[in-house]
Design a protein around this nucleic acid. Structure first.
Lengths: 105, 105
DNA sequence: TACAATATGTCCTTATTCGGACATATATTA
DNA sequence: TAATATATGTCCGAATAAGGACATATTGTA
């Protein structure tokens, strides 16, 4: 597979479907903004502006796809996000559409 | 699967990953702008602005992912797009990234 | 003959998003 | 104690994209 395009496409997906990617990450385990940023940057070797990250997280919460709880860990205040039932349904619907596209390849 | 979200997500994908969706369609068979518009609108029951469509097609051609040939059919001038080798590699790379995400579900 | 459909393209104003800075607070390390 | 890392958030000017109109040409239909 072409490594040349890989980074480009990942950036494209992260940029244009950030909400869905965040839901994906939060579904695997409850987590918080800063950790997601570090994780995505390490995993994909790209930059993630925290401005976009936090506002997208707020958006997901407003839509009822995630819930947040303030957590105090080692003196640091984290906002831990957990996926909701609606969030799971939304993600599942997204996956099923992609699955359909992959199958018709 | 939730029908409530389906249309919303399809619109999201078409809107944010239009270039990839166009490549997908052109890969299955060479086609032209107007036909793609009608096809997408019928298949997904959404509106596709032809302004965005034609400029995205031009963009794909500039990037070397598709090639166009002017064709005369029934007196009408069509610009028939065909996917290139680079276009196929690009799409394949995209699919492999999605596959990876789907597998980790 | 007028209208709808096929077919492709540009242009312009408005709306949205980007990238980066500004802002704040605590903990750890050099 | 100064810098770095963790942690979350807002704001603003610039860049980009969206929506729709303008433009043109042919064919088929009412």
């Amino acid at each position: 597979m072409s490594e040349t395009y890989k980074k480009q496409i990942v950036q494209h997906i992260i940029r244009n479907l950030l909400d869905i990617q965040l839901l994906r990450i939060i579904q695997t385990q409850p987590t918080w903004g800063y950790k997601i940023k570090k994780q995505v940057e390490a995993d994909f070797n790209i930059k993630l502006r925290h401005g976009a990250l936090y506002s997208t997280l707020s958006g997901l919460e407003q839509k009822g796809f995630v819930e947040s709880k303030k957590q105090q860990k080692d003196g640091r205040a984290r906002k831990v996000y957990t996926i909701t039932e609606n969030g799971k349904i939304y993600l599942q619907t997204y996956y099923s559409i992609l699955q359909g596209q992959l199958e018709s390849t």
